[in-house]
Amino acid sequence: MKTIEHVQAVAFDLDGTLCDSVPDLAAAANAAREHLGLSALPIETVKSYVGDGVAKLIHRVLTETYEEEAEPAQWEQGFTFFIRYYHDHLSVYTRPYPETEAGLKLLKSLGIPLIVITNKNEVLAVELLKQLGLADYFSLILGGDSLSEKKPSPLPITHAAEVLNIQPADMIMVGDSKNDILAAKAAGCLSVGVTFGYGDMTMLSQNEATKPDWLIGSIPEIYENLQPQKEVENR
C-alpha cells in the first residue's frame, strides 16, 4: 500500500461509496420514463448509467444508451420530472453502506476534515446526507454543479484543497468509479477505490490510468491505515 507523509483531509464520493442510492435513483428514473410513456428499465440498467450526474443519467435513461443524447424537449421534460420526483423520494430505500458511519466517526476522531465530492447536484447531495444523518461529519460538500467542472476534472479536489488551505497531495480521494480515480490522479492526490460500490474495481485496476493507489473493502480500513501515522505525529 502506498503511503504519504501526512493525510490532512479525506474526500469521499457519495453514490456507491458512502451509500447505496441506486434503488431510489432507479425508481425516479422509471417514474420519469412512465411520465413520458416509456416502459420501466431494470434496476441494473439504471445502475450502469449512474456516476456522471443527473443530466447525463436522464440522457442515458431516455435513450437506453451510454453516449447518445435524448431529443432536447424530451430530455427537459424527463429531467424536470426526475428532479421533482427524486427530491421527494431521496431516501425511501437509500441507506449508508453498513460500516460507513463507523468509519466516518473513526476518521473524525483523528481531527482531520472530511469532504464529499460528488457528481450529484449539490442540493440533492446535501439533502440526502442530512436525511441519512451523515451531513454533520463533513466540512465541505461539493456537487456536480457546485463548480464549472465536475469529476473526472481535478477542479473539485483542487478547489477543496484551496478552501481547506492544504495541498492536494495531502488529501486522499475515496470512490467507486473511474471518475473518482481519474480526478484524484489529475489533482495529484492519492486515490482509494472501494470494492463494494458500483464500479468494477477489478477491471479498473487492470489499467494503469484507472488503477487506484489503495483498495479497501470498508470505510474503517482508511482509519486503520492512518491511525499509526497519527500516533507517530502526536508523539
Rank of each mutant, 00 (worst) to 15 (best):
I115R: 01
G199Q: 03
V192K: 12
V123W: 10
W75I: 04
E34W: 00
M201A: 05
P113W: 01
Y66A: 12
K2Q: 14
L41K: 12
L182P: 08
Y93H: 13
Y49F: 15
G144M: 03
W214K: 05
L25F: 14
S21V: 14
L114W: 00
D170M: 00
P228I: 13
A160I: 11
L57Q: 02
G111H: 08
L38T: 02
I117P: 00
K2S: 15
D213K: 06
V192Q: 04
L142E: 03
F138K: 02
L129G: 04
D136E: 15
P220L: 14
N119H: 06
L164C: 13
I219D: 00
L164T: 05
G143C: 07
I216D: 09
F196C: 03
T65N: 05
L190V: 00
P156I: 09
I58Y: 03
R84D: 14
A184S: 13
I141L: 12
P168G: 06
K2F: 12
D180C: 06
V46H: 07
M171V: 10
D213W: 10
V92T: 13
V7E: 05
S153E: 08
S205E: 09
S205D: 09
I115E: 07
L204G: 07
L110R: 10
Y85C: 08
F79W: 03
A31G: 07
V192H: 09
R84A: 14
K56A: 12
N165P: 00
A29T: 10
S39T: 15
I181N: 01
A40N: 11
E5F: 11
C189V: 06
A32N: 06
T210N: 10
D213G: 03
N179D: 06
K130I: 01
P42D: 15
E76M: 05
Q77A: 15
E162F: 08
I117D: 03
T195H: 05
F82M: 07
A55I: 09
A184E: 04
G188R: 00
K47E: 14
A40L: 03
I222W: 01
E149V: 05
T195W: 02
S48R: 13
Y86E: 07
E69D: 10
A187K: 03
W75Y: 10
S218M: 02
S177K: 10
E233W: 14
D170G: 10
L129E: 04
E208N: 04
V194A: 05
E67R: 06
V126Y: 04
T202P: 00
S91M: 10
Y198C: 04
A11D: 02
E71W: 11
C189N: 15
